[in-house]
Design a protein around this nucleic acid. Structure first.
Length: 365
DNA sequence: CTCTGCCTTAC
DNA sequence: CCAGGTAGGCAGAG
């Protein structure tokens, strides 16, 4: 017997905070509002070595956007305000905003620190009512947290997400079921989730420029080019179909940390020292969630920016910092035997996280 | 199932 | 000479 909810036409909302990190900083430092603001991740190497995390619209007008180097950004916008990321601040703001959003539906699916889906199907009877609710939501976030966001509403997550991106900042876009195909048809394929640079280039070679082009490709062609899961997704998405439910998730499925070394090196001791630090950080996060883990990876990024990983899975779960350290050391050593070249960045990640009921911390294995 | 590389997503 | 940190998912081989 299928659940009647599954058959029902859904009304899904997607909320996306506008230029989130930079907006949080504007609120924190009102005097910088109106100026270009650039949020930076400093690598810890030279003074301005690092990358731009995000920027406000004034900075974007000057060409300063996520991903470019800080040095480049300084050339493009000498008078901009450059600030280091302050994750704690953004996290706190995020909690406030998500708290408000939770008041609008039974469950939300938080996609990242500044994005979430919300299923309104049981809360409203039609898209017009959903629009009013979204206006109220935006207003409440503005009143209580003093931040703007862009909201999209559609019959599924895919359409809601594209809609929230359609008008920014401070936008609201509602796409009814019957408007979906017209809405999608002229959009760029990179507007779809799962289509980035690589996939986009490959699709261009197939003569696909906009979404309607892709919707006409035979599914077996897409599967041949992109594999089963992705091919199927591209076919469905280009036709506006997405049956994935809004699912509340608690916590991530992996915990990782990665850093840039002061200088490229293949010296074991330097790398192990870094690993010990990272182990402590990862352990703290693990402990705060009271979880155990079964797999651990060492991540290495070489001077040419290629990523390498080495993973080890244990027979049973562990939850102590010593196991993290020891296993990570093993992975580092075995990696360096195979790849004795200098590394730029190193990191560790634990996965296969498991609920830990008992509190005994006997080292296993 | 495990492991690695690759892709994506932005912020 | 310059390119950060984090997480999720998939393919393909073993």
């Amino acid at each position: 017997m299928s659940n009647s909810n599954e058959r029902k036409n859904r009304i899904i909302l997607h909320m996306d905070m506008d230029y989130f990190f930079a907006q949080c900083e504007e609120r924190e430092h009102p005097e910088i509002k109106g100026k270009p603001v650039v949020i930076c991740v400093y690598s810890g190497r030279g003074g301005d070595s690092g990358a731009v995390s995000t920027s406000n619209y004034e900075a974007r007008k000057l060409g300063v956007k996520a991903g470019i180097s800080i040095n480049q950004a300084k050339k493009l916008a000498q008078d901009a305000v450059f600030l280091p990321v302050n994750r704690e601040l953004y996290h706190n703001r995020s909690e406030e905003v998500m708290g408000i959003l939770k008041g609008y539906c039974d469950k939300i699916e938080q996609e990242s620190v500044d994005e979430a889906y919300c299923d309104l199907t049981e809360k409203v009877t039609d898209f017009e009512e959903a629009r009013l609710l979204a206006l109220k939501l935006k207003d409440e976030i503005r009143q209580l947290v003093d931040l703007t966001c862009s909201v999209g509403i559609g019959p599924n997550k895919l359409i809601a997400k594209i809609a929230s991106d359609y008008q920014k900042p401070d936008g609201l876009t509602v796409i009814r079921s019957e408007e979906v195909l017209h809405f999608l048809a002229p959009l760029k394929i990179t507007d779809l989730i799962g289509v980035g640079k690589k996939t986009g280039e490959k699709l261009n070679e197939l003569g696909v420029k906009i979404i309607v082009d892709m919707s006409k490709l035979p599914i077996d062609r897409l599967i041949r080019e992109f594999g089963q899961a992705k091919g199927l997704w591209l076919k469905q998405a280009s036709n506006g179909i997405d049956d994935s439910p809004v699912e509340e998730r608690q916590g991530t499925e992996q915990i990782g940390r990665i850093i840039t070394l002061k200088e490229n090196t293949n010296e074991l001791q330097i790398i192990l020292d870094a690993i010990d630090q990272l182990s402590g950080d990862v352990y703290m996060k693990l402990q705060s969630r009271n979880l155990g883990f079964k797999s651990i990876s060492f991540i290495a990024i070489s001077a040419d920016l290629k990523t390498h990983t080495k993973t080890l899975t244990m027979g049973g779960p562990a939850k102590d910092v010593e196991t993290i350290r020891i296993k990570a050391h093993e992975l580092v050593k075995s990696f360096l035997l195979e790849h004795p070249n200098p590394l730029r960045r190193v990191g560790i990640r634990i996965s296969n996280l498991v609920e830990e009921k008992g509190q005994k911390t006997l080292g296993d294995y």
